[in-house]
Amino acid sequence: MKDDFYDILGISKSASAAEIKKAYRKKAIEFHPDKNPGDSTAEEKFKKAAEAYEVLSDADKKARYDQYGHRAFEGGGGFGGGGMNMDDIFSQFGDIFGGGGGGFSGFGGFGGGGGRRTVKGSNLRIRVKLTLEEIANGVEKKIKVKRKKVAKGTTFKTCETCNGQGQVTKIQNTILGRMQTSATCSTCGGAGQTVDSKPSNADASGMLSTEETVSIKIPAGVVDGMQLKVTGKGNDAPGNGIAGDLLVAIEEIPHEHLQREGDNLHYDMYISFSEAALGTSKEIDTVTGKVRIPIDSGVQSGKILRLRKKGIPSINGYGTGDLLVHVNVWTPKTLNKEQKEFFEKMTDDSHFQPKPEKEDKSFFEKVKDMFS
């Protein structure tokens, strides 16, 4: 089981954005690879801290994590802090450390002081529509994605402008003294390499647009608007860069009969006067197939029948919701002469007089129960 992001950074769920940033910087400094050379445990903690900060520093991701936990980011590999390399971390969070150009102030090795920063390809975004049945059971989708890949036969050489560093450093004389600034190399875009040779059908960066079938594993319980990430299935980066990610937005297709409320489902079932008086059984739709449920004689309109664990599995692993069947006794709008005579005879019959019992809850009590 993955560690809790708040525990990793040593903060509470009520921590402010400034407190989250401060806590991450403290952990990053403590476990920075330059301070702990050859220590794989420290490196792993450094990556976990970056993963926690990547989620908690983003208001939308934080809200989803608070509601669904780690499962909010599962699917096709998820975030996977352990899969990030150091250059990727510094490229995203270099400003936290205060170093120029993504480096770490006071230490060498990564980003600003020593080596070339690895460039990451651009992310791709797609939308996947899911039925309620697919959401309830989980599904694996195979989607055709158009992505740019380095063309076969393309070779790269060290950028002559930045000498492979990916950055250009300038020293300027100012009234405050000599100032050193670093900026991404405009020639290679920070890759440290430029195209040496390429096929005639490739673009200026040595890329080709290709169509690839990507398998996306979608866990049960996802919600409309949730975003999953498939690592490394975005566009390639030039040279020895790493590929971007494929971001998958979930869209829920409305069901013909079922309405979703969190992990619970609602079903409106209509029965006739005679069925309500005599009792019956009805076949209804669920996300796992059709089921037949008995209706007791004398059932009242508005009664709610609860089918346990016939709803949607919690994406956070907290069980499965229920299916709430709302019984509605249908009142006929037109009656023939014989039917009218029957009901006129029954008007004063004691069996047709309303006699609510304690278990027959009022509308407001039912609403209260639903929200509790």
Rank of each mutant, 00 (worst) to 15 (best):
T347Y: 03
G189V: 11
R64F: 14
P313A: 07
D349I: 01
K198S: 09
V214C: 05
I175W: 00
E51D: 08
S40K: 15
G38V: 13
K26A: 13
S362V: 11
G166Y: 08
G311T: 10
E54S: 10
D348T: 11
L278Q: 15
N173L: 15
F79Q: 06
L323G: 07
D95M: 03
L246E: 05
K152P: 05
I253W: 08
I250T: 12
G302K: 03
E344K: 09
D3A: 10
N328L: 15
K47Q: 04
K157Y: 02
F107A: 05
P354G: 04
E275G: 02
M1C: 15
G109N: 06
A42D: 00
F79L: 14
K142I: 08
G289D: 09
G81E: 02
A59K: 14
L208C: 01
F107T: 08
E338A: 13
D322A: 09
V367H: 04
E252T: 09
D87Y: 12
F110N: 10
K282G: 07
S40L: 15
N201V: 14
G192T: 07
N240M: 07
D348E: 08
L335H: 11
N336L: 05
H351Y: 05
D95K: 01
N163M: 01
R178N: 03
H351T: 11
E344G: 10
Y267T: 00
A15E: 03
P33D: 04
F31M: 03
K152G: 01
N235W: 07
H255N: 05
K62I: 08
R116A: 14
A49Q: 03
N123A: 04
L228G: 12
I171H: 13
G153N: 09
E140I: 07
G221V: 10
